[in-house]
Amino acid sequence: MIKLKKYGKIIYTGKSIRGWKIIIMPDEIRIDDYYKPSHVHVQNKGIHIPIKYKDYEETGLILELHLKKNKGINLKELIEELL
């Protein structure tokens, strides 16, 4: 996976026929569209929250703007922005 450090976070991304995924560490947030329309997983608690952005690049832009605005991740706000 490709690794990118931004605002103290490490963001991993990957894309294949199966779909795309973005993982934000150490926050343990994963956004992907594997097996079902795009959704967020938080800390592997088995909760999948559907999001409105279907596209990898659009989702990436929302994440980038969020990171920039908050200088990090505010999970509650990020989920609201993605919904």
Binding site: L4, G14, S16, Y56, E64
Partner: peptide
């Protein structure tokens, strides 16, 4: 044989 594309988008 399947292709795997890795992308980084920088703004």
């Amino acid at each position: 044989e399947e292709e795997y594309t890795q992308e980084v988008i920088i703004y």
